[in-house]
Design a protein around this nucleic acid. Structure first.
Lengths: 207, 207
DNA sequence: CCAAGCAGTGAACCATGATTCACTTCTTCT
DNA sequence: AGAAGAAGTGAATCATGGTTCACTGCTTGG
């Protein structure tokens, strides 16, 4: 048996695969998913179109991975920040919201692509996963807050989803066209919004 | 000059156009935008494909109109409900949120299609308009609340956008797959969330 | 060095679905 | 009735862009 894949060739293969994903990600960050066709990505990665298909079964799978690669570190940061054991729930939410917003505003095109751009079904399902991830991260904090008596018992999943949606929607406009207000003011507004939206134990239900 | 368009033929033409839009809308309500191709819509309307193009310059234009026709009455209801002159801002927001949620939950597939389904650019820009419409409706209430001293001064546009996003995101899951909780409970949670999220004058900033 | 296996190539291929257009049918008016 | 203009038809056409595959060239172990 004259040929065996070896460590070196494996590494080479992985490097190529990686170059493809990186090129695709760069393209998405530059011009969104709409601009990222297979031919464009291949050219950008310095490989032939066929090579892309040697590493990924389809365009959808490639971009699902691209989405994941862009999304995971973001989610990880939010999970990390929100998981802090000690501060009250409201503060943990505030920290998570702030981290989320700052990072999104630092890479507007990419953030828009990840949050709001129309994408094909394979990527859309990854996006759904991501949203669930954020929702669950927030919900965990809310559950902790309820357990600690800081928050009234409530439907934490729904409230967490609402927080996620609030951030996405409030950021999407500014992500594409910077609005008049400063970035700092926007972040402050959203942090405060999300904190006040929580069903604080001491808060009265209005009306 | 042997032929002149008359009232009867105009009406006939309008009726055909209307049938096409209605068929397209029905298709979207049944299976989303992804299921609504020109051929399918034409068959459903009982006309030939070419006829569609006699009434609309492109698929995008057709579906932009479909989107508008589905969206306008919804937005009108929310505007109507939120414009009530008399009740405090928080109550007006609550009424608007309740109306929005109930109507969305009454037509889940359509609501999902309108709020969250990936669509082509022409429709996406209509969607953007719609969101701005909702945001402005909410923002008007918030502005009134600030003017009346019920709410602290704040970035009402951003907060209004956040409310819109919160509703959309919190509803999208339940729209496709009914979750365990009842519809009533969901509506109640969201109404309360949106009310508490407002920067009430008497509320203290937490943390 | 040779055989075998695998990564890389890219022009050709193909699937989908929007769009066209030559033709038919209908309506109006003289 | 018949001319003219307009609406309706739907098979053929076209555009886009994802996917394939026969071929080239490199890497490995005998």
């Amino acid at each position: 048996m004259p040929y065996r894949p070896t460590e070196r060739t494996e590494a080479r293969k992985a490097a190529t695969r990686n170059a493809i994903v990186a090129a695709a990600l760069a393209q998405v960050a530059a011009g969104g998913y709409a601009s990222a066709g297979v031919q464009v990505v291949a050219r950008r990665a310095g490989v032939a179109v066929g090579t892309v298909y040697r590493h990924f079964p389809s365009k959808g799978e490639l971009f699902a991975e691209v989405f994941r690669r862009a999304a995971e570190p973001e989610l990880d940061v939010v999970i990390e920040v929100s998981a802090a054991d000690g501060p009250p729930a409201a503060e943990r939410i505030a920290a998570a919201v702030e981290a989320f917003c700052r990072r999104a505003l630092a890479a507007p095109v990419l953030a828009y692509a990840q949050i709001a751009e129309p994408v094909d079904p394979a990527v859309e399902s990854e996006r759904l996963r991501l949203r669930v991830g954020y929702r669950d991260a927030f919900a965990r904090v809310l559950d902790d807050g309820v357990a600690a008596g800081e928050l009234r018992p409530h439907d934490t999943r729904t409230v967490a989803a609402a927080l996620v949606g609030a951030l996405g929607e409030a950021l999407v406009g500014p992500l594409s066209a910077r609005r008049k207000g400063s970035k700092e003011a926007l972040v402050a507004t959203l942090v405060q919004f999300c904190q006040e939206a929580l069903p604080h134990a001491r808060a009265r239900v209005h009306a």
